[in-house]
């Protein structure tokens, strides 16, 4: 039985100019102990789909799916309070901006212990011990000391480690990592990726890796889903994706990597296919529009 199974997921946002479809009919499933990468550029709906699973979308979003089952339980049929018991305990998520994901008012230790109190009902001493154990697990040096640090006293890499500690605190069955290393330096990225994959193997979690970086995919994933503009373009295991990409889009993405450059020019996606014509492109995505 798959750990997470999603059939025909559609997410639309209610905007000033009518509904906008961010995810259009995505099917997805992940087995226990598997690393699945979801790749796409901005606007591909890769984060939105996972936020829908977590129930973290704003209330202007409409989520529809034929089935969205975690461990055999259909998440869409649960009451909000039942769902909260699963989300954060059996499924947990880490985000792109490690420093912004931690509450600046509380120490790292407090934030780890908060999860333990809420989901595991441990007493004070148990929580303390477990927090130290978790800090060790994610590779933070002198954990007793660090428990009392505030987020602004730590580097981005350390903050992301704390986020991972919080995420794995309740031994989740599924960990969703949304661009976990995009905001980090390359050398730190390597450490965090190794840590995530190491923890995944050690505890037999399912790991969903949302990323736009083909290098990250190549270094971590077992299986890959490529998304573009809210639709699934391709699904394949990692080796065949890189060896023999089936869809034009994947092929274009791979050839746009600077290290794959042939001669002086990089092939671009619009050189190859369906990128809208220049005039249409102008009226098109205005990302992060200034309000």
């Amino acid at each position: 039985m798959p750990l997470l199974e999603i059939k025909n997921l559609t997410v639309s946002f209610d905007t000033a100019a009518g509904p906008f479809m961010a995810v259009q009919g995505i099917d997805l499933s992940i087995e226990p102990r598997e690393v699945l990468a979801i790749v796409g550029e901005s606007g591909s709906g890769k984060s939105v789909a996972m936020l829908a699973v977590m129930g973290l979308l704003p209330n202007t979003a409409t989520v529809k799916a034929d089935r969205m089952a975690f461990d055999g339980v259909d998440l869409l049929e649960l009451s909000p309070s039942e769902r909260r018991k699963i989300v954060g305990k059996d499924i947990s998520m880490i985000f792109q901006e490690p420093i912004a994901s931690l509450n600046p008012c509380f120490t790292a230790g407090f934030q780890i212990e908060e999860v333990l109190r809420f989901h595991m009902g441990m007493d004070r001493a148990q929580r303390r011990a477990r927090a130290i154990e978790l800090m060790k697990l994610v590779g933070i040096a002198d954990p007793e000391e660090r428990l009392n640090s505030f987020p602004h006293q730590m580097s981005g890499g350390q903050c992301q480690r704390v986020m991972i500690a919080i995420a794995i605190a309740c031994n989740p069955k599924l960990l969703i990592a949304d661009e976990p290393t995009t905001a980090l330096d390359v050398t730190i990225q390597k450490q965090i990726l190794d840590l995530l994959v190491g923890l995944q193997a050690k505890y037999g979690m399912g790991l969903i890796m949302i990323t736009h970086n083909m290098g990250v995919v190549a270094e971590t994933a077992d299986r890959v889903i490529v998304q573009y503009k809210g639709r699934k373009m391709e699904e394949a295991d990692v080796l065949s994706l890189f060896e023999q990409p089936m869809s034009n889009y994947t092929r274009a993405l791979l050839s746009a990597l600077p290290e794959n450059a042939v001669g002086d020019r990089l092939p671009t996606i619009s050189d190859m296919l369906f990128e809208p014509a220049p005039s249409a492109a102008a009226t098109q995505p205005a990302t992060g529009a200034a309000p």
Binding site: L193, A201, A218, L239, F242, L254, E259
Partner: peptide
């Protein structure tokens, strides 16, 4: 050298190497 080693590689050979290593583990 550290910087070069940390840069993720997106080529088939290194994926094969990684998968082989994973299987062995």
């Amino acid at each position: 050298k550290t910087l070069f080693a940390a840069t993720p590689r997106a080529d088939v050979a290194s994926i094969k190497a990684r998968l082989a290593k994973k299987k062995a583990a």
